[in-house]
């Protein structure tokens, strides 16, 4: 039996444009602030598909077509999501994510998508997400930057 190989991308949404505007809040908290609730999995997928089509044309859109791209988890509170793509096309998706400059909703805030983990199984991506969330809390408590 041949498995369909996949890649899970764990992505953080960062908001660097507001650093320094709030003097009492540490940088970590400002950068990792919550995302707007308008960003639903459907909207996010549409944004990524559009960017892939923009960058890689029909070939790219074809590669991520057929249910191979989906949002497995999206948390607006921690600005984190997990994407599933096929292994052959994850680099397209990843570079499309690097090219996105704002949240793909109407009047979206400027942001940066940072892929923090790539793994072959959902479980490892989830564990990493939990670890990162915990580190983030500690970092915010200490008022220091992420290690």
């Amino acid at each position: 039996m041949v498995r369909i190989k996949e890649r899970y991308l764990l992505v953080n949404i960062l908001y660097p444009t507001e650093i320094g505007t709030r003097p009492n809040v540490p940088d970590v908290v400002v950068i990792n602030q919550p995302t707007t609730d308008q960003l639903t999995p459907v909207v996010l997928l549409r944004g990524i598909r559009a960017e892939v089509a923009n960058l890689f044309g029909d070939y790219g859109s074809g590669a991520i077509e057929g249910g191979s791209l989906s949002v497995k988890y999206l948390s607006q509170a921690t600005s984190t999501f997990i994407l599933r793509t096929s292994r052959s096309s994850y680099r397209f998706v990843w570079s499309a994510l690097s090219f996105i400059n704002s949240i793909p909703v109407k009047n979206g805030k400027p942001c940066i998508f940072r892929v923090v983990h790539v793994s072959g199984t959902m479980r490892k991506a989830e564990e990493e997400a939990i670890r990162r969330a915990r580190d983030l809390i500690f970092a915010a408590q200490n008022g220091q930057n992420e290690p």
Partner: peptide, 17 residues
């Protein structure tokens, strides 16, 4: 500006593509 920066892993992936 601040939006021109990317994380190291993202950069590596970009230039790999």
């Amino acid at each position: 500006g601040v939006l021109g920066l990317r994380a190291p892993a993202d950069v590596v992936n970009l230039v790999h593509v």
